[in-house]
Design a binder for these strands. Structure first.
Lengths: 370, 370
DNA sequence: CTCCTTTGTTCGGGCACCGTACAAAGCCGG
DNA sequence: CCGGCTTTGTACGGTGCCCGAACAAAGGAG
């Protein structure tokens, strides 16, 4: 009960800072006295801090409160296909330290990757100088209860209990804090939702060799009954299209995955594709237009089904500029049933979204729990 | 606070009846004393009833509680394309009275339909003999805040505030009770979820001239940010397919809508199609197989996106038998990424699902609120 | 017939919130 | 320069509601 109200107060602070005790009382419906008492708890726990600055108006100046930027922080980790990364965000969600190093997970066993993860995490934690209250790990694959069930690009990690293993190797660094693992696209969606100052419903698409979607509904990540929601890559965009490794045919990945885009544009990798897109070379523009159309078709289906007002293009897509964005937006405008336009944004976080999202998921949970 | 706990107790009774006070206490974590006090409230409100039967075991016999079948009931209404219907369900969700009459909404103004609705509602309410605590209205169209925003098959009802209008005309019959309006497919999904004894996540597809989906996530109807979620009919199943009235091409409706199925099978209407399907006539079987494949493609996309374990085929589809079900299930098995099979059920409620769902939504809300 | 088990009720104790009253601290007008 | 005004934050009694323990009730087992 008190716990609930403490969380309510904390969320109010998070939603509008700086804010006075009196304003919190007005917003939550609690009494000023009750709020004072709850705020005392939060101050003692180090979750909020008092500014002390008394910028005037009429009446007694308020004593403004905000989330404690030196308080407990979240450590985000990412296990990419060929990299590991780490970042620390404070309670406000601001990134305080970040680093990334290469790590060949396709060829090396998980133990090697975990070693790399520890080293980069240690550096980042030391750099930030904040107490770590929890760890989030982003992984490109399907998780069930923290166990990696399916990860096409991380074959040696199959059936690894990521959360548990990371917790073990990281214990010397950060102590015995809760570790959660999440899908890369889901966490990317969360990051875009939080930093994007967007609404409470976002469909985030992470482009890469695979195409995954993260869904934020009503302000929280939606993972489905089995934690596997968001597999957009194998939506059918052309029933007559090529066979796919998934057993179907005409999947989105075959038309708008990174490999298909590179092949159609006649370039070797994402960097070359990005450069060619920036120069607006003819075959690349055509390839991106065709891929964007396919993506738009798949997204239109998802938007019609979920009624989401904002679509964010992230991952590799974030680097491919306006040609892609326009093709997607055109197709959405044509196929979405309602007239209020669906907004198509390029991800401002780009390839860091998942990493930041992993860290943000931790502090978000801290704030939610009070 | 007390309200919250009262609701908790009521939901426990709803989840497992009959049930003793002591068992409720064990389940909820409250004290037996507290539960007793809360149950007294619920008895006074007429929401639960005491059975009085004391079937023995060891120890003092319990006094079993269950939802009051004579207590407040929900009135469900449906405005179909050419019919109006009404039904009353008691607190347990059991249908206590039901009726349907024709009403040509395509040609007549809403006022005429409302008149028909009142007459059928009055009959059903009298037949059930229970106090009506609320009204739910199912409508085949997109609603925003109770206003019918888009309803292709109900052109004269456009922009009508269904909930408000129904509330006005029904006030003499049932008094001043809350009226809510909902999409037909959403309410159908709710009904299947509640009666189907299924899990908390269901994707319900209502086949007809249009194809709509109702989504139940985590035990509650999901309507999306703008209340328009579930438009499955215009998912693309074949980019090269025919143009559609929605502006796109190759939409599911063009391949698996009722009109397409009839045309492909060479029959005139749903009744003929149903009969031909029952006789397993060759062209009909082929038409249903092709339609079922298209439906399966669209559903696979939705399932991959939402990770829903159960798909229910309802509306007209409920009458089309195993041929359709098999084609859908085959396509789902092929295209859904995870190996745990997606269950494909035929709706047991059939065409009544939306009507029952409208009534169920009312009592569900009563139970949720305590 | 007596004991035992389980149920439902009753009664003090305490926690948390509410309402009100009061001190604090800066603006504003004379 | 100073008193009123306004708004903020704190202190104190009152109340609602839940918990824990003790107690009466009601039937089965030996």
């Amino acid at each position: 009960m008190r716990r609930h109200n403490r969380a309510l107060v904390l969320q109010t602070v998070a939603g509008e800072q700086p804010v006075s005790r009196a304003r919190i009382a007005a917003r939550t419906g609690l009494t000023r006295g009750t709020v004072s008492s709850l705020v005392d708890d939060l101050l003692a726990a180090g979750l909020v801090a008092e500014l002390g600055v008394t910028r005037g108006g009429t009446g007694r100046p308020a004593s403004p409160l905000q989330l404690n930027r030196s308080g407990p922080a979240g450590l985000g980790l990412e296990i990419g296909v060929e990299t590991v990364g780490a970042c620390v965000v404070d309670l406000t969600g601001a990134v305080r330290a970040q680093a990334q190093i290469p790590s060949p997970h396709r060829t090396e066993a998980p133990a090697v990757g975990l070693g790399a993860l520890v080293s980069v995490a240690a550096r980042v934690v030391a750099g930030a100088g904040l107490p770590v209250a929890g760890v989030g790990v982003a992984v490109p694959g399907v998780l069930a209860d923290g166990v990696l069930e399916r990860a096409p690009n991380l074959p040696r990690w199959r059936d690894v209990d990521v959360a548990a293993r990371v917790g073990e190797v990281l214990a010397p660094e950060v102590g015995d804090v809760p570790v959660t693992a999440g899908n890369e696209a889901d966490l990317g969606a969360l990051a875009e939702h939080v930093t994007g100052s967007g609404g409470d419903d976002v469909l985030y698409v992470s482009g890469g060799i695979g195409v995954g979607a993260g869904i934020v509904l009503d302000g929280r990540a939606f993972r489905g009954a089995g934690g596997r929601a968001g597999e957009l890559g194998h939506v059918v965009v052309d029933a007559a299209g090529p066979e796919c490794s998934c057993g179907g045919s005409g999947c989105l990945e075959s038309a708008a995955g990174l490999e298909a885009l590179c092949r159609a544009a006649g370039v070797g990798d994402l960097d070359a594709l990005t450069a060619a897109a920036a120069r607006e070379e003819r075959p690349t523009v055509e390839a991106l237009t065709a891929g964007g159309r396919a993506l738009g078709i798949a997204l239109a289906g998802a938007v019609n089904l979920l009624d989401v007002p904002v679509v964010v293009l992230g991952g590799a897509y974030a680097r491919l500029g306006r040609v892609l964005q326009k093709a997607v937006a055109d197709e959405l405008a044509r196929r979405v049933l309602w007239r209020s336009p669906v907004e198509v944004r390029m991800s401002p976080l780009g390839p860091d979204a998942a990493l930041v999202g992993a860290a943000v998921s931790v502090v978000r949970e801290l704030v939610r729990a009070g």
